[in-house]
């Protein structure tokens, strides 16, 4: 099956400022594709070109075989968009909004079902909604037309942790219905939890495209383990191990850094010396660290 979205050498500038320098990626049918990067990296401009809201200065964009600009009307029927700063009239009620926007599409979803799924109050006006409810309504509006693709920009920004988790569960449900999802985010945890593949964008360029786990691997971020030895321990025993890059003391705790082999190596040394590691804590190299590593301004 051909990819549903194909972006090739996309270039977009605003005046002298280059927003997107050179971005290429493809999105396959049915996947959740993350576009990840720091603020100002060009993520939003990239998806705006996909949505046909901006005219690229260079490169090509094809969505469902359509040109987002030339075939804009057809595209709007099949691509649902959740805007980063998309709003509604203050005094419009939730039910009215969903019913109205549903009427724009040839084959809309049942707005009452969507309302229930998202736990939204039908009678409340937009102005009276909490941040989380507004966010969920804007997701509902992205899905009301029964789209083939949904583009979700900064999905959970401004939500509390519980609302964020609920929203993630919702998105997984949407994907289960066969909708391809493009997720723009700067939350690593979100990308790690939801995305099949992630494009990391920095300064208008694609740094790499990989699975979230692959991305963390590639960054080769150090692991960090911390424990309290049950008996006095000579730091030199650990510092000499292959893969270990540092051993430091923090009060009665020992902190060891190194690659992903250090945990096993250190535990083996401790076992040989009949020392147990009390209150052991290992910090995994998450996408967060990989992200910082990969988008660092002066890579070594």
């Amino acid at each position: 099956m051909p990819p549903v979205i194909e972006v090739t050498s996309l270039h977009k500038r605003y005046g002298d400022k280059v927003a997107v320098d050179d971005v290429s990626f493809t999105v396959e049918q049915g996947e959740i594709f993350g576009i990840l990067g720091p603020n100002g990296a060009g993520k939003t401009t990239t998806v705006e070109c996909v949505e046909g809201l901006r005219t690229p200065d260079g490169g090509t964009v094809s969505v469902l075989g359509l040109d987002p600009l030339r075939d804009h009307l057809e595209l709007t029927r099949r691509l649902g968009v959740q805007l980063q700063a998309g709003s509604l009239p203050e005094s419009l009620r939730v039910g009215e909004a969903l019913e109205l926007y549903g009427s724009f599409y040839p084959d809309p979803a049942d707005w009452r079902v969507l309302l229930d799924d998202l736990g939204l109050p039908a009678k409340a006006t937009y102005a009276a909604l909490s941040g989380g409810q507004k966010q969920r309504l804007s997701i509902a509006l992205a899905l009301i037309g029964n789209p083939d693709i949904a583009v979700l920009d900064e999905l959970t920004t401004g939500l509390d942790p519980q609302a964020r988790r609920d929203t993630w569960a919702l998105i997984e449900g949407v994907r289960a219905r066969g909708v391809t999802i493009v997720l723009v985010t700067h939350f690593m945890e979100e990308a790690e939890r939801l995305c099949d593949r992630v494009a990391l964008i920095d300064a208008g360029r694609v740094v790499l495209i990989d699975t979230p786990a692959g991305l963390a691997d590639r960054a080769q971020v150090e692991q960090r383990m911390q424990f309290r030895p049950s008996r006095p321990l000579d730091d030199a025993l650990l510092a000499g191990l292959p893969g270990v890059t540092g051993v430091t003391r923090r009060g009665e705790f020992v902190v060891v850094t190194g690659d992903d082999t250090v945990v096993n190596a250190v535990m083996a040394v401790l076992a040989r010396n009949q020392i147990t590691a009390e209150r052991l804590r290992v910090e995994q190299a998450g996408l967060e660290a990989a992200f910082v590593q990969l988008t660092r301004k002066d890579p070594k």
């Binding site: 949505e51 809201l53 009307l73 709007t76 029927r77 691509l79 649902g80 968009v81 805007l83 700063a85 998309g86 709003s87 509604l88 009239p89 926007y101 724009f104 599409y105 040839p106 509006l141 037309g145």
Partner: peptide
């Protein structure tokens, strides 16, 4: 006031992403 508010709040922008415009 209403239409400039729609523009400011992104209502018009949202409409651009629908078949209605």
């Amino acid at each position: 006031t209403t239409l400039a508010g729609y523009r400011e709040n992104g209502v018009l922008r949202r409409m651009r992403t629908t078949p209605v415009g």
